[in-house]
């Protein structure tokens, strides 16, 4: 096993491959994500970017390569992936709040059951985070009583309650009505400002340009280009990226 673990690399992806039957979705992905990085992954639909993100916490099982998280190979067969997932928050396109629980219950169930935190402490922490996203008054509501933007902010808070070391966002604004996109991006912007390590699969080019420190373009199962946002958007080199940007900008 290779041991070139650099202290500032939170996640190291090496030769990651994923195939669904005959379909090769990810082909030899190599990338390091450092502490405090805000990485935006963009690319056409079907390019494999969501699959890449879902491989990082093994919601999709990689079919090749390794992923090291905080120096531990989480793709090794004996890894207790549940332990590592507690440190990797994830936010889904469809929010996936638990509809049978109140907002507060959604937020405290994992910290209480998985980290053994006392209910009072977990509730205080949850309340603090709810206040930050402006939803403290909805603690007793059920998810069905919330708007899409509110749901997604709650979903972010739910992941944050586990005090993760990295946050994975899978197209967090794609299912939202346009007027609600801003409130969710604001929360993410705040997180980035606090130096939270984030990997964001998104179509929000403005957000990528403004908040990310690295933007990566994926197509056909490869990362074709990576750069700092100004350079990435101002001087794209790869032909496919130029083509893609010309369509979305």
């Amino acid at each position: 096993m290779t041991t070139d673990y650099r202290t500032d690399a939170l996640i190291q992806v090496k030769h990651l491959g994923k195939r669904f039957g005959d379909l090769e979705v990810l082909k030899d992905i190599n990338v390091d994500i450092r502490k405090g990085d805000v990485v935006c992954v963009i690319g056409p639909s079907g390019s494999g970017k969501s699959t890449f993100l879902r491989c990082l916490n093994r919601l999709e099982e990689p079919t090749g390569g390794n992923i090291l998280f905080e120096g531990v190979d989480i793709t090794a067969p004996k890894t207790d992936i549940d332990k590592h997932r507690q440190k990797m928050g994830m936010v889904f396109q469809q929010f996936n709040l638990f509809p049978h629980m109140t907002i507060m219950k959604n937020l405290i169930i994992a910290p209480m059951k998985l980290q053994g935190r006392p209910q009072k402490e977990a509730e205080e922490e949850a309340m603090r985070l709810l206040e930050r996203v402006g939803l403290a008054d909805r603690a007793g509501a059920y998810p069905s009583q919330l708007s899409g933007g509110q749901k997604q902010r709650i979903a972010i808070v739910r992941a944050l309650c586990m005090k993760p070391d990295v946050m994975l966002f899978d197209e967090p604004t794609s299912a939202l009505d346009p007027e609600m996109v801003g409130e969710v991006l604001n929360v993410m912007r705040d997180l980035a400002r606090e130096r939270m390590t984030m990997v964001v699969v998104t179509h929000e080019m403005g957000f990528a340009r403004e908040v990310a420190n690295r933007v990566m373009f994926m197509d056909d199962g490869y990362f074709l280009e990576e750069n700092a946002p100004e350079e990435f958007f101002a001087h794209p080199r790869n032909e496919r990226l130029k083509n893609f940007l010309s369509k979305v900008l």
Binding site: D82, R85, F92, L114
Partner: peptide, 17 residues
């Protein structure tokens, strides 16, 4: 919906939990 299942697993719950 499978998203419910994935949300649970992504928080660190094991299959049974």
């Amino acid at each position: 919906d499978n998203g419910q299942f994935e949300a649970g697993r992504s928080l660190g719950f094991n299959y049974r939990q």
